[in-house]
Design a protein around this nucleic acid. Structure first.
Lengths: 315, 315
DNA sequence: CCCGTGGCATAAGAAAAGCTCATCCATCAA
DNA sequence: TTGATGGATGAGCTTTTCTTATGCCACGGG
């Protein structure tokens, strides 16, 4: 989890310049000179080895590469700004802040959270879906963050998908996961039925960044490998989504076959929205864990939540 | 949309130090000396006016403030890293990259996208859900990004919720939105029925960061104001979610009443998952727009998508 | 109890990064 | 053609950041 990042100030300048499509205006915004902007952009381009702007005499234009990365870049700075903001308007009013991966939140936590609220109506909850709660590849899981501040009001717990190696934290295992292929039942039974893995060659594979992160690589290719059809089915083609939630949605819309984590999709399978056509389950070592710094582990809100969560997880 | 950010390098150092809970280890990771880390942290603390670490003789511990902002911070750096990554492994294979706000993607685009894939099977699509596509308050909508690169393969279009003021871009209005209160039908007809806005006093209000951004402030308070019950119902209390998707999910789980955007929730209302108990609709000036740089506006993939999208939007 | 060790803080100088100034070049419009 | 606009460039200066060296404090073994 070591970030390999370019000079951050240059990135910030780049963002501004891209926004204004003008070095001059960016310079004004950043309270520096146009020359400084020009230098920063140039150094960033050199660093990346990629041209970011086309200089067309008067004015500049973004290259494709630059444009492609801009939304993400924005999102990044936005998150940083929000993070800094958080330090100031500290979530003091909240008793319990739960940070969890998006799919887990949407498919597992939310359907159950109402029950928790009912049982503990006095606990003020804040739920944050954050893609950062997946420890890449369930490997290098080491790095998460501790705190031992004894005073203060908010109790922040996190739910991670990882290998369970969180030194210095109280970590409670919720449940393990397995990777399965899922699709709409109508698609599976349709004109081109999906019975054996090789049938996938006739269908669209739905990819998403989150599963690739969990699998530490191209999730579909690994799955196809396990299924023994890597040579028959092209595991790279198909639409790609930024989140597993989206690819599941696409699958239920009969767009193709997606990879998913059990038991998160169990409800979808039970309701008939999705089905798992094969018996093949890739079993990563990862599991969902409830993590919190030891110091806050015994606070009433945290204890109540943990008790409730563990009971839910056992069902 | 001018980012007010602290020294970014200091942030990066902080993140590493927080991760290791050790200035020394952070220094090693960053290939600098422990003294440099100490300096950076100190300068960041001075800048923010907030203590980030407790120095307890041997070793350091995070303060509550520091811990609160860390997940976000991670997310930020992650997005930056991903952005940079994108520059290199350029999405060259993708014909059409669609970036859109999460709720729009999940509730509107995805249920329809299968149809597009069916009609245009040859177009390789990539869907990115990004919270950055909401132009805060539908005000200061100016700043989005252009590109006029004529060559290159990928066509990136974005869907924004904003005021429609996108100079230099081709912007097609999809549809306007209105803000409504939604809840589970069972809740509305339950023991404590929800008939008039004042009844909200007996129920939990579900908040989320996304709606607050659209409303440019506390969405619930504005809504209660419009409904004329701002004095009877406390618009600040209740659980808080990071995304509108989550608060809708919470609402459908009978956790309380959420704010939502029509027509995005129309499908949920039609299916009976949710209902809109009041006739009050806060009508912001914003609408969803399909935005793309003029230069790529006439590419086949973009034209096909726009045509399809506009037709879908008119239904 | 005392000293050794580990880990952070601090000060001053050195190195690097970032900025400005002055000037140049290309384009565009009149 | 000419003036105006906006970007590029190089030299030198400023500010930031890093290092080295040293001090301080807490903990733990003898």
């Amino acid at each position: 989890m070591i970030y390999r990042l370019p000079p951050l100030n240059a990135l910030r300048v780049f963002e501004s310049a891209a926004r204004h499509l003008s070095f001059k205006d960016a310079a004004t915004e950043l309270s520096i000179t146009q020359a400084a902007v020009s230098h920063q952009i140039k150094s960033l381009e050199d660093y990346l080895g990629v041209q970011l702007f086309k200089r067309a005499g008067r004015g500049v234009q973004l290259t494709e590469a630059a444009r492609a990365c801009l939304p993400r870049l924005r999102e990044g700075f936005d998150a940083l700004a929000a993070a800094v903001e958080m330090i100031h308007v500290r979530a003091d009013e909240t008793d319990l802040q739960i940070t969890a991966p998006p799919v887990f939140t949407a498919r597992w936590l939310m359907p159950r959270l109402a029950d928790f609220q009912k049982k503990e109506p006095k606990i003020d909850v804040r739920v944050v879906g954050s893609s950062k709660m997946v420890d890449a590849g369930a490997l290098d899981s080491a790095a998460i963050v501790a705190s031992h501040d004894l005073r203060s009001d908010t109790s922040g717990v996190e739910i991670h998908l990882g290998a369970g190696d969180y030194p210095g934290y109280r970590a409670d295992r919720l449940f393990g996961v397995t990777t399965v292929a899922v699709a709409s039942p109508q698609l599976v039974k349709g004109a081109q039925p999906v019975k054996v893995p090789a049938d996938l060659a006739n269908h669209t594979l739905l990819h998403d960044d989150a599963m690739d992160l969990v699998a530490h690589g191209h999730a579909w290719e690994k799955w196809l490998d396990l299924a023994g059809v890597a040579d028959k089915v092209d595991g790279t083609r198909g639409p790609r989504f930024s989140s597993n939630i989206l690819s599941l949605e696409a699958a239920s819309q009969k767009m193709g076959i997606a990879l998913a984590l059990r038991p998160l999709v169990d409800a979808d399978i039970a309701s008939g929205r999705l089905c798992a056509p094969f018996n093949i389950e890739l079993k990563p070592r990862s599991a969902y864990y409830l993590i919190c710094p030891e110091v806050i582990a015994e606070r009433p809100a945290v204890v109540a939540f943990r008790k409730w969560l563990l009971r839910q997880a056992q069902k």
